[in-house]
Amino acid sequence: MPKIVDYDARRTAIGRAVARLIEREGLGAVSVRAVAGEAGMEPSTLRHYFPSSDEMLGFALSLLRRDQEARLAALPRTGDALADLRAAWLQSMPLDAARRTECHVWVAVTAAARTPLLRGMLEEVDEGLDHLSRATVAACGVRGDAGLEAMGLRAFTDGLALNAVTQPEVFTPELVERLLDSRLRRLRDEGAAGGR
């Protein structure tokens, strides 16, 4: 009797293996042989699921995005727009093992994206973060150039996430939360001052 293979489970195992390798050893460690070993399968099997390394990287990124989207969907809504947006921002920060892995993969793919496939996937990630930035600035009631403020918030949060994955001993989860809260407080205070 032929063995029944769960195609989606195999692809997921490969995507998770790619993410673990990137976090542990960097993007340079991602090869067909290394990923196959990490996933516990033969290289020829891996090639059947992902003919190119870009497809493998893209799937790993999309898998981690789905994880993040599931966490966001599960967040309780408080009715306080800024509190809810803060909770969403925290899901994009490397505050635990899962979110650290997501940030490592995002940074690695961002640095290496040279093909339309990977650039397109990163554009989707960027659109989500840009939307979150604009929504946060609007919830804070910031007057003046809201687009510029949203870009500034995006640059701040990207930098915060990058520092947290490259210097975790300095940018601890507690410090990341404090810095994010400080930035949101300043935006809210600016919005309140502008409305007077």
Rank of each mutant, 00 (worst) to 15 (best):
E42Y: 07
S44L: 15
T45Y: 00
T45H: 00
L46Y: 02
R47P: 00
H48S: 06
H48N: 06
Y49G: 08
Y49W: 13
P51V: 00
P51K: 01
P51N: 03
S53C: 05
S53E: 09
D54T: 05
E55C: 04
L57P: 00
A60S: 14
S62P: 02
R65C: 02
R66L: 01
A70P: 02
L72K: 05
A73F: 03
P76G: 06
T78M: 12
T78A: 14
A81T: 10
L82I: 14
A83T: 15
A83N: 02
D84C: 11
D84E: 08
L85D: 01
L85Y: 05
A88L: 05
L90I: 00
L90F: 09
M93C: 09
P94M: 15
L95M: 07
D96M: 10
D96N: 12
A97D: 15
A97E: 15
A98G: 03
E102M: 09
C103G: 02
W106R: 11
V107D: 01
A112F: 02
R114P: 05
R114T: 15
L118I: 12
L122P: 04
L122N: 09
E123S: 11
E123T: 14
E123I: 11
E127S: 09
G128N: 10
G128P: 10
G128F: 13
L129V: 01
D130P: 08
H131D: 10
S133Q: 09
S133H: 07
T136V: 06
V137F: 06
A139R: 05
C140P: 07
C140V: 13
R143E: 04
G144P: 05
L148F: 06
L148N: 04
M151Y: 10
M151V: 06
L153A: 13
L153Y: 13
L153R: 12
A155H: 14
F156H: 14
F156P: 02
T157L: 03
D158M: 02
D158Q: 12
A161P: 00
L162Q: 10
N163T: 06
N163K: 08
A164H: 05
A164N: 04
T166V: 09
T166Y: 01
T166I: 04
P168I: 00
V176L: 05
E177L: 08
R178W: 10
